[in-house]
């Protein structure tokens, strides 16, 4: 066979490949432009946008760990108005669907950002960040409470009009299927999983946490096997029967890592921390998935989803 069909159906959108770049690891696209053809991505998810500009946390915001890293950026972003004025016009240059990651301190703030952005054609949809572990009030408190997830998901879905809504789940819960179910019942079009694990690194000389925020979110290869397990769990327990696609990710560095997520039940994958090391990782993985499919005589990449034996 020569041709592998890499296109996927993602909540009714036809995407040219199953690989996204993850929010907070790819800026607003212009930063990555020197390194790769953004147009080949299945989707691009921007850094979180909030109603007001946010400076973010004091430094250190980053610390490397064994096969991973902690970040506590604190949703530093330009704010929705400046995003519309300065960043949004640039997105027209790229032929890839853009998803804007939305964050806030209150449900009203999420709604306000979604309402302001709903009119723009160059935005394919939103990723709802209810799982940022680095912001006090909001973020993770929304993401761990099924009732709040229901409220915020349905409110943002309504505010976003026809835009696709992806809800990003935190792994910092006892049973992620419960939070996934809450988002699905509230009408989310897709799930994105997983966000980072809340974690801490201590400087033993000073006996203080290394990060100024004290805790941060653990990402990178260290979390990958847990992420694969959680994607498979949610796929089997809630997403498959509801026919809601999963954007899977957590520690993906290689084609093999990405294919694991697809087999586990993800319809698409997102590349995060790996882009810091090789900014063109997502493109290499698109090519790698194509090779894998050819080798295994898989005609459509979508056939891999949930093919775990």
């Amino acid at each position: 066979m020569n041709k592998v069909d890499l296109t996927i159906d993602f909540a009714g959108l036809k995407l040219k490949s199953p690989v996204f770049t993850a929010s907070g690891t790819c800026g607003y696209a212009d930063e990555l432009d020197d390194f790769m053809d953004i147009g080949r991505l299945g989707g691009f998810i921007t850094k979180s946008i909030t109603i007001e500009k946010r400076d973010g946390n004091p430094v250190p915001r980053i610390v490397e760990t064994n096969s991973g890293m902690l970040n506590a950026i604190g949703l530093a972003n330009v704010g929705v108005e400046k995003f519309i004025a300065e960043k949004l016009p640039l997105l027209k240059n790229y032929k890839t669907p853009f998803f804007v990651n939305i964050a806030g301190k209150t449900i009203d703030e999420y709604i306000a950002v979604a309402e302001k952005l709903a009119q723009f054609e160059q935005i394919a949809g939103f990723e709802l960040n209810i799982s940022c572990p680095n912001v006090k009030k909001g973020g993770i408190t929304f993401g761990t409470d099924p009732q709040l997830i229901h409220q915020i998901t349905s409110a943002v879905k309504k505010a976003g009009g026809k835009k696709i809504l992806i809800t990003k789940l935190t792994p910092n819960v006892t049973d992620i299927s419960i939070t996934a179910k809450a988002a699905i019942e509230a009408g989310t079009d897709a799930l994105s999983m997983i966000n980072t694990f809340t974690a801490m690194v201590i400087d033993i000389e000073t006996r203080k946490p290394v990060l100024a925020n004290r805790t941060g979110g653990l990402s990178g290869p260290a979390i990958k096997p847990i992420a694969v397990y959680l994607v498979n769990k949610v796929y089997n327990e809630v997403a498959k029967s509801a026919n809601v696609p999963i954007l899977g990710g957590g520690g993906i560095r290689s084609t093999a890592d990405a294919v694991e997520f697809l087999i586990a039940g993800a319809t698409a994958v997102s590349i995060g921390t790996a882009s810091f090391i090789y900014p063109d990782t997502a493109i290499k993985i698109i090519d790698g998935i194509e090779d894998y499919c050819r080798r295994h005589k898989i005609e459509r990449v979508g056939d891999l989803t949930g093919s775990l034996k």
Binding site: G24, T25, C26, G27, E31, L32, F35, K47, D55, G56, N57, P58, V59, P60, R61, I62, V63, E64, M69, N71, I73, A76, T273, S275, F276, I277, P279
Partner: peptide
């Protein structure tokens, strides 16, 4: 401390005063 060096991670914040607005920001 930088995770990427390319502006993606936003980890390497430096507190600066904007010369025009006199406001502090990163």
């Amino acid at each position: 401390v930088m995770a990427c060096g390319t502006g993606l991670c936003q980890g390497c914040a430096v507190k600066c005063i904007d010369k025009k607005t006199k406001e502090a920001g990163y």
